[in-house]
Structure formats: structure tokens, C-alpha cells
Computed example of a mutant assay.
Amino acid sequence: MSRTIEEQTVEQLGGPNSILVRQRRDHAEMDRLMNLYRALDDGEERERALKDLVQLVFSHAFAEESVLWPVVRRSVPEGEELTSRVEEEHQQINDLVSGIERLDAGDPEREAKVERVFALIQEDVRDEEDLLLPRLQDALDSARLRRLGAAWEAVRKSAPTHPHPVVPRRPPGNAVLGVPLSAYDRARDAFGLDVSGAAGKKALTGLAGALAVAAAVAVLRKRH
């Protein structure tokens, strides 16, 4: 098996557009944002760093689950076991961030959840870079790694950016429900929709649920 992708050059990983290089680049940015959050004193700046991290983590994970992990399950020995392990980590992060978004900044319970999320992200990165991605590197040539990188990037740029309990971890359900929820998330991010207060949170949660139900109904009608 190839060694961890953390230690390899861009050329060894298939070039700058390879899925391996793109993954490592996102992982490095996650690490930078976590360190920034811990280093900052200003509450507003800390919240901005956390917001940027959440948006990156969820779009990154959605693209993995939609594009990358199906290829791993088809191409890599023990691919099912490896992707299931990472999907479980993603679900734990999803649940914790959902809790964080319901709590006020500065709440000790919220800070504890943030640190737990950071630990899970770091664990997830190590599982991917040390175990899963080296096996994918052994299974695919550089050209396929670059094609997979392009597909993954396209999905990541249009993926949901916040946790949604209604979204399953695997295709086709995640892709179908992700389309309307991505539009909802990106409008929320772009316009700074207020989710503070019970009324705002209830309205946004209801909108997300309605979008998910509408997508599910559309799929059922198409199948019949």
C-alpha cells in the first residue's frame, strides 16, 4: 500500500488536479481554520472562522459521499468497511454541529461540542489520508485520479454547507435531497439569514424539512 498522502509530493499524488491533492488541500484548510478559531480572542472573528470551517467540512463531506466513496467501494479491497468508518465519523460531526448551531456563542456546552467536532475532524482526516486514500491511489492511475478530482470538485462547489439530519449518507438519497438543501444553505450563507432565537431556528428548520420532503416526493413520482 502507498504511504500516507500527507508525505507525498503533488506529482506522486497524480498532479494538482488529482482527487488526492484536492482532498489534502481541503484538509490543510480545515486545520488552519481550527487553529485560527483557537487562537482568536475576538468573538465575532472566532464565529467567522467557525462558520467558514462548517461550510467547508459539510461541502467536502457531501462530495466525498456522493462521488468519492462509491468509487472506493467498487475499486478498493475493504472499501465498504473503510467508507462505513468515515461515514460514521461524518454522522457524528453532523449531529454535533447541529447541536452547536442551536447554542449561543460562549456557552460552555457549545465550546465543548466545538472541541469534540475538531477532534473528530482530525480523526477523520487521519483515517482518510493514512488508510483510505492510499488504497485508492493503489487502485487508480493518475488520469482516473484527476477525472475523479474534477467530478468531486464540481459537486463540492454546489453541495450543502450545513448539517441536515434528513440527508442520508449514500447515493442516490443524498444527491437527491442535497440539491434543494444546497440552495437553502447557500442563500442562508450569502444573505446572512438570522438563525438566532427560537422563531428563526424553527422557521429555517421547517423550510429545510419542506425542501427535503418536496425532493423525496419528486423522486417517487419520477420512479412511478
Rank of each mutant, 00 (worst) to 15 (best):
residue 3 R to E: 14
residue 4 T to V: 02
residue 9 T to H: 05
residue 10 V to K: 12
residue 12 Q to Y: 02
residue 13 L to E: 00
residue 15 G to W: 05
residue 16 P to I: 04
residue 20 L to S: 07
residue 34 M to H: 08
residue 35 N to D: 15
residue 38 R to A: 14
residue 39 A to M: 11
residue 41 D to W: 12
residue 56 L to T: 02
residue 56 L to Y: 06
residue 59 S to K: 10
residue 61 A to W: 01
residue 62 F to C: 07
residue 64 E to A: 02
residue 65 E to D: 12
residue 66 S to H: 12
residue 67 V to A: 03
residue 73 R to E: 15
residue 74 R to C: 09
residue 80 E to Y: 05
residue 80 E to M: 08
residue 81 E to A: 14
residue 82 L to M: 15
residue 83 T to C: 14
residue 83 T to H: 01
residue 85 R to D: 13
residue 86 V to L: 13
residue 91 Q to T: 14
residue 91 Q to F: 09
residue 92 Q to K: 15
residue 99 G to N: 08
residue 105 A to K: 11
residue 109 E to H: 13
residue 110 R to M: 04
residue 112 A to K: 12
residue 119 A to G: 09
residue 120 L to T: 04
residue 120 L to N: 02
residue 124 D to T: 13
residue 133 L to F: 15
residue 136 L to V: 07
residue 141 D to W: 09
residue 141 D to E: 11
residue 142 S to N: 10
residue 143 A to L: 12
residue 145 L to M: 03
residue 148 L to S: 00
residue 149 G to K: 06
residue 153 E to M: 10
residue 157 K to D: 14
residue 160 P to K: 02
residue 161 T to K: 11
residue 164 H to D: 02
residue 166 V to H: 04
residue 167 V to A: 06
residue 171 P to E: 15
residue 171 P to D: 08
residue 172 P to C: 07
residue 175 A to D: 13
residue 177 L to C: 06
residue 181 L to I: 00
residue 187 A to N: 12
residue 187 A to D: 11
residue 188 R to E: 11
residue 194 D to P: 00
residue 194 D to F: 09
residue 196 S to Q: 15
residue 196 S to K: 13
residue 197 G to L: 07
residue 199 A to F: 09
residue 201 K to L: 14
residue 203 A to H: 08
residue 205 T to F: 06
residue 206 G to D: 04
residue 211 L to K: 00
residue 216 A to Q: 11
